[in-house]
Amino acid sequence: MTEFWYLTSVIAVLAGATFATRALPFLLLSRVADHPLLEHLGRFLPPIVMVLLVVYSFKNDAALSIDFVPELGCLALVAALHLLFRQALLSIIAGTGTYMVLVQMQMQMQMQMGLG
């Protein structure tokens, strides 16, 4: 029973802390939601965050290493497909499929060369 109360209180605290970060602006700023500064941020922050989320996915690759190549190449493939056909699912599935094949081939090669 103590385990139940321990985990319940942990989940309650983490849920509260997570919700707090998401709700804070709505709780504090709802009266000024149409302020031009918030409209300015609403217009330009989403594209910036999107680019940052793409860049963030490289955080585990060592700088200027071979790790970059498959990821960068497949992201370029996703971008090219999406600019050409603008079919989100097609771009994502083709890019991810190619990436999975490349990464798994790379691992097999490393195993054969005795590096893995």
Partner: peptide, 24 residues
């Protein structure tokens, strides 16, 4: 619990700015 709350607030703090840009 206190340590957990602070760590969670820090790791999720970017979400404050998501909300900020969604308000309009």
């Amino acid at each position: 619990l206190m340590e957990m709350a602070i760590a969670t607030l820090l790791i999720n703090s970017r979400h404050v700015f998501y909300g900020l840009s969604l308000m309009s």
